[in-house]
Amino acid sequence: MSRDVAVLGAGMHPWGKWGRSFIEYGTIAARTALEDAGVDWRDVQSIVGADTVRGGYPGYVAGATFAKALGWQGARVTSVYAACASGAQAINTARTQILSGLADVVLVVGADAAPKGFFRPAGGDRQDDPDWLRFRVLGATNPAYFGLYARRRMAVHGDTLEDFAQVKVKNAASGALNPYARYRKTVTADEVAASAVVADPLRLLDICATSDGAAALVLSSMDFARRHGQPDPVRIRAVSTVTPQFPQTVLDLPDIATDSAAAVEPPGRTFRASIAHAAYEEAGIGPEELSLAEVYDLSTALELQWYEDLGLCAAGEGAKLLREGATSPGGRVPVNSSGGLASFGEAVPAQAIAQVCELAWQLRGTAGERQVAGARAGITANQGLFGHGSAVVAVR
């Protein structure tokens, strides 16, 4: 049985700091995706919204919020939150509805209006919240966390500041060609090196910004796509949202010595690699068959880690792959042809959807100046809080 669903339409609202409501951004992205698909809003049977925790109550019920903004027409509504994986979870929810026969055509929307500066815990003081504790007790803001990742790569694999800078140079060059990107300016390695240190060793240009933005997809069954005049659409073949596998660390179990949950063997791969492995297994392809990848480059160093976790190279060889030009435009497997978060900034509920928009345009061959020649298969990847991560495989 095929698990493919068709990507009929993709749409976005440009990223930036516009000072308006996430509802406005999401509605524009949704209408753009519907127009791209050639589907009337009244024919959509379900809408799945990726929630934002920064939009008040409307942000917590994003599905209904966008349905109302587009005009109540009786569609099923669902709202999903999964930190940075919210958009992919929304795609997976839509895919499940389609494959189960609950809906033939589903609209997926994610949008955010980000605060100035880096993200901080939402909802006030919560002393039992690990995220709150990370910020308030350890002082480990997101940039500090990214800096620790970078230092580890330098210590373990010998990565250099120049390697990190070249990731930014590569992504900025692609972002300069993307009309939806917030930052559309090429940069040099010297400019990265000259930018302010934020969390040693990372500079300002090594770290993604926070942004307003939105993305939307129109997904359908393959039968609907054929009836709609699209016999060979881009297809989502796999969505991985697996959890990590680690030994039980709760110390107050009644009998931790004999409890089977405490005896889980550590995995042979990292959490991020496990996400990718599950996606490859479901899609029936391997990393050697990829034409491109879109990854969550919260920092330049983290992009190098994704190369290894996606199986594009062996552990410790991410910087080598970059230096060889394999992940650059025209390389063996371009990474972040959209420009990545380096060019967009982070709009949490929208970004995983935006990654799939880029795959859709690339696999259609409609990505313009940043087109990856002969693109046939792509993967997205991101990691969020508390074991939330995702990878989506799309093919043509």
Rank of each mutant, 00 (worst) to 15 (best):
S328C: 11
I28S: 01
T188I: 07
L310Q: 12
C84K: 12
I98L: 13
K68C: 04
E358D: 13
S220M: 06
G19L: 12
P329Q: 07
S2N: 07
R332I: 01
A283C: 09
G56P: 01
Y81I: 14
G123H: 07
S299M: 09
S221P: 02
E289Y: 12
I28C: 04
P334S: 02
T249G: 15
V77I: 11
A216T: 04
A347C: 01
E282S: 11
L385F: 07
G117W: 03
L359E: 04
A360L: 09
S343F: 00
D163G: 11
T249C: 07
I275A: 05
G63E: 02
D200E: 12
G11K: 14
D255N: 15
A111R: 14
V333Y: 03
G378W: 00
Y149I: 15
I353P: 12
A140H: 06
V242N: 02
G56W: 00
C84Y: 09
Q166I: 12
A75P: 03
R323D: 02
G63L: 00
P179T: 08
A276S: 08
R364W: 07
I207K: 12
K185F: 10
A75K: 09
L177T: 15
V218I: 14
Y296N: 03
D4Y: 06
A6I: 15
W41H: 06
A155M: 06
T270F: 05
W361E: 05
R126W: 14
S220V: 06
G378A: 00
T241N: 08
Q383D: 00
Q351M: 13
D190E: 14
R396C: 00
A360E: 14
T27N: 08
L99A: 12
D223P: 04
D309P: 09
A189P: 12
H228F: 03
H388R: 08
T93W: 04
Q248K: 01
K320N: 14
N142C: 07
I91M: 09
G56L: 00
A144H: 07
G331T: 03
V395K: 00
F344A: 09
F164W: 10
Q305R: 10
S100W: 15
Q362A: 01
L341T: 14
A216F: 03
G389P: 02
Y180D: 09
A69T: 00
A83F: 09
F224C: 04
A225Y: 02
A67M: 03
G59P: 04
I379D: 03
G365Q: 00
Y280H: 10
S390E: 00
L251W: 06
A165Q: 13
N178H: 07
F135K: 03
R136C: 06
